[in-house]
């Protein structure tokens, strides 16, 4: 799947949880990705970020990725 699309979708999720109260936003982004994204999509996003293309990825997503 195109990485741009995965990043856009992940960033949208992060934008929502960033607006939520509390200190567990990264956990909640991770939980959402685990609940709704298939494992292939998650690992594609992970390898995209691991390969150093993190620039366009929301910081909250970057923090969530190790949790999934």
């Amino acid at each position: 799947m195109s990485p741009e699309k995965l990043v856009r979708m992940a960033n949208q999720i992060a934008t929502f949880f960033a607006s939520q109260p509390g200190t567990d936003q990264a956990e909640r982004v991770a939980a959402h990705l685990k609940d709704f994204w298939g494992p292939e999509m998650r690992s594609e996003l992970k390898s995209y970020v691991a390969a150093g293309h993190g620039g366009d990825v929301d910081e909250l997503v970057v923090r969530a990725l190790p949790l999934i």
């Binding site: 799947m1 195109s2 699309k5 609940d35 709704f36 994204w37 298939g38 494992p39 292939e40 999509m41």
Partner: peptide, 18 residues
């Protein structure tokens, strides 16, 4: 135990050959 693909994801995965 893992969620599967949603319609848009199926189509994306199809274009990617998976």
């Amino acid at each position: 135990p893992e969620p599967g693909l949603r319609i848009p994801n199926m189509l994306d995965a199809a274009v990617a050959g998976q």
